[in-house]
Design a protein around this nucleic acid. Structure first.
Length: 339
DNA sequence: CACGCGTGGGG
DNA sequence: TCCCCAAGCGT
């Protein structure tokens, strides 16, 4: 009798699983749901390499979901700075508080799905990995592997339905969490977007895309829209070895993060260029930063006048600017000012 | 379903 | 330099 996809994949996983900080070692019981959840949220659209230091810092500082739930929001946001997609951090705090309030993580996919920041993928992943539930876990890796295995020619995202149906068929009743992680390891190391390594693949036999001779062709994706170029200005106001920082609105770009004052640029519109204070402004240079939907050319200007900023904000000591939790865009701007 | 939402790395 | 992307979610 021929072995199933799950059999072959799990056998491969038992020998080749990546060792990652949020994973249980082979033979150990399922890892702490808090660590599974935290890692999965951090890994949304984010590489393993980028996540590792943040995962280490978060778990050292907030070892439990209860500890995270008690943390001041701005400290969590600052700790997330640089990782991107800051709505994840905002939802992370909300979810931590909801979980702490109910005394622990729910252990079913449906209940997990109700927590902020847990969509179809993450709810299934946590249910399978942390609670050993059978759940069909479909991320971009699984989409790629499945699209190739079954030669699904429908372009993404249309193909999602067919792919999840195929993934459902392939998912085993036991070890669904290991199966999910095995699929993701396979996608990350063997069945890669470019140049898949079919000679090393445990599923090569019976893979339709491999038989076709051009596995990298699948899954078919539509081309992305062109990014507009936006221009904006950020303002460096320094006094007594402190810089004036504001907090951005809770939604939208870099929402909830500390920032330099700016002229109202966004991914949709250029900034107006109006300075927040009257007086001399010296150009410090320009920062180019690429967001998902726009490329921003940010001019940075330093205030030379004597007025005091109005409205919400805080004087932040330059000596501890690294702790302010500036998103990368503003960290670049600060580097200009301090150079 | 389409869009908005970061960042750093690889080819 | 440029493009694509890497364990998606919320609206």
């Amino acid at each position: 009798m021929t072995s199933t996809i799950a059999d072959r994949l799990l056998e491969w996983y038992d020998r080749h699983a990546r060792s990652l900080p949020w994973r249980a070692r082979p033979g150990e019981p399922a890892p702490d749901p808090y660590r599974v959840w935290l890692s999965e949220v951090m890994l949304q659209q984010t590489t393993v390499a980028a996540v590792k230091p943040y995962f280490a810092a978060f778990t050292a500082r907030w070892p439990t979901v209860a500890a995270l739930a008690e943390a001041p929001e701005e400290e969590v946001m600052a700790a997330w700075a640089g990782l991107g997609y800051y709505s994840r951090a905002r939802n992370l705090i909300k979810a931590a508080r909801a979980v702490a309030a109910r005394g622990g993580f729910p252990d079913t996919e449906a209940e997990l799905r109700e927590l902020p920041g847990l969509g179809a993928y993450t709810a299934a992943a946590v249910a399978a990995i942390a609670f050993d539930r059978r759940a069909v876990v479909v991320d971009a890796n699984v989409e790629r592997v499945v699209a190739r295995l079954f030669a699904i020619e429908i372009p993404l995202p249309q193909a999602r339905k067919a792919i999840s149906a195929a993934a459902e068929t392939a998912t085993p009743d036991c070890r669904a969490g290991d199966f999910a992680q095995a699929m993701m390891d396979l996608g990350a190391t063997i069945c890669t977007t470019r140049d898949p390594k079919c000679l090393l693949c445990p599923l090569a036999e019976g893979c339709a895309a491999r038989s076709s001779g051009d596995p990298a062709r699948l899954p078919i994706k539509v081309k992305k829209k062109e990014k507009p170029v936006r221009r904006g200005t950020a303002f460096w106001i320094e006094r007594d070895d402190c810089v004036w920082l504001v907090r951005r609105a809770g939604k939208g770009m870099l929402g909830g993060m500390r920032a330099l004052p700016d002229d109202g640029w966004s991914a949709q519109v250029d900034g107006g260029g109006e300075t927040p204070l009257v007086g001399d402004w010296q150009p410090l240079g320009r920062v180019v930063h690429v967001f998902t939907h726009a490329r921003l050319e940010l001019s940075v200007r330093r205030y030379e006048g004597l007025q005091t900023p109005q409205g919400e904000g805080e004087w932040w000591p330059l000596a501890t600017l690294d702790d302010a939790g500036l998103p990368t865009l503003f960290a670049k701007a600060a580097r200009l000012a301090l150079a």
